[in-house]
Computed example of a mutant assay.
Amino acid sequence: MTGPIEGWAGPASLGEGSVLTVVGAPHPVLARLGDPVDPTDPAVIRLAADLFATMAVSPGCVGLAAPQVGVSAQLFVVDVGAHPKTATLHGSFALCNATVVEASRWRPGREGCMSVPDLTGDVKRASRVVVTGQLPGSGQSVTITTDAFEARALQHEIDHCSGKLFLDRVSSAHAIYQRKVYL
Results as ranks from 00 to 15, higher is better:
residue 34 G to C: 05
residue 69 V to G: 00
residue 39 P to A: 01
residue 103 A to Y: 00
residue 45 I to M: 09
residue 124 K to P: 11
residue 56 A to R: 06
residue 25 A to Q: 15
residue 1 M to I: 15
residue 153 A to F: 00
residue 22 V to Q: 03
residue 23 V to W: 05
residue 99 T to A: 15
residue 127 S to F: 10
residue 96 C to W: 01
residue 139 G to F: 08
residue 124 K to Q: 14
residue 47 L to P: 02
residue 132 T to Q: 15
residue 178 Q to A: 15
residue 53 A to L: 04
residue 129 V to Y: 01
residue 76 F to K: 10
residue 34 G to T: 07
residue 87 A to G: 13
residue 56 A to G: 08
residue 50 D to I: 10
residue 144 I to Q: 00
residue 147 D to V: 11
residue 31 A to R: 10
residue 75 L to N: 03
residue 7 G to S: 10
residue 98 A to H: 04
residue 44 V to R: 05
residue 170 V to T: 05
residue 113 C to S: 10
residue 36 P to T: 11
residue 25 A to T: 15
residue 121 G to N: 07
residue 118 D to P: 06
residue 138 S to M: 06
residue 172 S to G: 12
residue 116 V to N: 02
residue 57 V to L: 06
residue 86 T to S: 10
residue 180 K to A: 14
residue 81 G to K: 09
residue 124 K to M: 06
residue 146 T to G: 05
residue 124 K to Y: 13
residue 88 T to N: 09
residue 181 V to D: 08
residue 5 I to E: 00
residue 149 F to G: 01
residue 15 G to F: 05
residue 6 E to M: 13
residue 53 A to Q: 06
residue 161 C to L: 04
residue 64 L to N: 05
residue 170 V to S: 06
residue 94 A to E: 04
residue 152 R to H: 11
residue 15 G to D: 07
residue 148 A to W: 06
residue 40 T to L: 06
residue 133 G to F: 00
residue 157 E to C: 01
residue 129 V to N: 00
residue 78 V to R: 00
residue 106 W to Q: 15
residue 100 V to F: 00
residue 25 A to P: 12
residue 93 F to L: 06
residue 87 A to W: 14
residue 64 L to H: 04
residue 4 P to C: 12
residue 49 A to K: 03
residue 154 L to K: 10
residue 5 I to A: 03
residue 18 S to W: 13
residue 50 D to P: 03
residue 99 T to V: 13
residue 43 A to Q: 15
residue 17 G to A: 05
residue 117 P to G: 04
residue 89 L to P: 04
residue 104 S to M: 14
residue 180 K to V: 08
residue 2 T to P: 06
residue 75 L to R: 07
residue 115 S to W: 00
residue 52 F to Q: 01
residue 159 D to E: 12
